[in-house]
Measured scan of single mutants.
Amino acid sequence: NRLGIIYEIQGMKAVVLTSEGEFLIIRRRKDMKVGQQVSFENEDIYNV
């Protein structure tokens, strides 16, 4: 599992900021809110 803070939500995608200072786009889940810490898997990351 990886951890990140939700920075922005766009439709079915969420932008998270990881503890390494990396911004990633992941698959959104219904319970996500901006500012929330979430765990996610590598499979949830969109390749940009």
Rank of each mutant, 00 (worst) to 15 (best):
N1W: 07
N1R: 11
N1P: 13
R2G: 07
R2W: 08
R2K: 12
L3V: 11
L3E: 08
G4Y: 03
G4S: 02
I6P: 00
I6M: 01
I6A: 01
I6N: 00
Y7C: 14
Y7F: 08
E8L: 13
I9C: 06
I9H: 01
I9F: 14
Q10D: 13
Q10E: 12
G11C: 15
G11Q: 10
G11A: 11
G11I: 04
M12K: 10
K13T: 10
K13I: 11
K13P: 00
A14C: 09
A14M: 07
V15W: 12
V15Q: 06
V16Q: 00
V16D: 00
V16N: 00
L17F: 08
L17H: 07
L17D: 01
T18D: 05
T18C: 05
T18I: 04
S19E: 10
S19K: 10
S19C: 12
E20T: 11
E20V: 05
E20W: 04
G21K: 07
G21P: 00
G21H: 03
E22M: 09
E22F: 09
E22R: 05
E22G: 06
F23D: 02
F23C: 12
L24S: 03
L24Q: 09
I25C: 13
I25T: 09
I25S: 11
I26A: 01
I26P: 00
I26Q: 00
R27P: 07
R27D: 08
R28C: 15
R28W: 15
R29Q: 07
R29H: 14
R29M: 09
K30C: 15
D31P: 09
D31Q: 13
D31E: 14
D31K: 12
M32F: 10
K33W: 04
V34P: 06
G35R: 03
G35V: 00
G35E: 02
V38Q: 02
S39P: 04
S39D: 10
F40L: 08
F40I: 06
E41S: 11
E41R: 11
N42Q: 08
N42F: 12
E43D: 10
E43G: 04
E43Q: 03
E43L: 02
D44H: 02
D44K: 02
D44R: 01
I45Q: 04
I45F: 03
I45C: 08
I45H: 03
I45D: 05
Y46G: 13
Y46E: 07
N47C: 15
N47S: 07
N47E: 14
V48A: 08
V48R: 05
V48K: 14
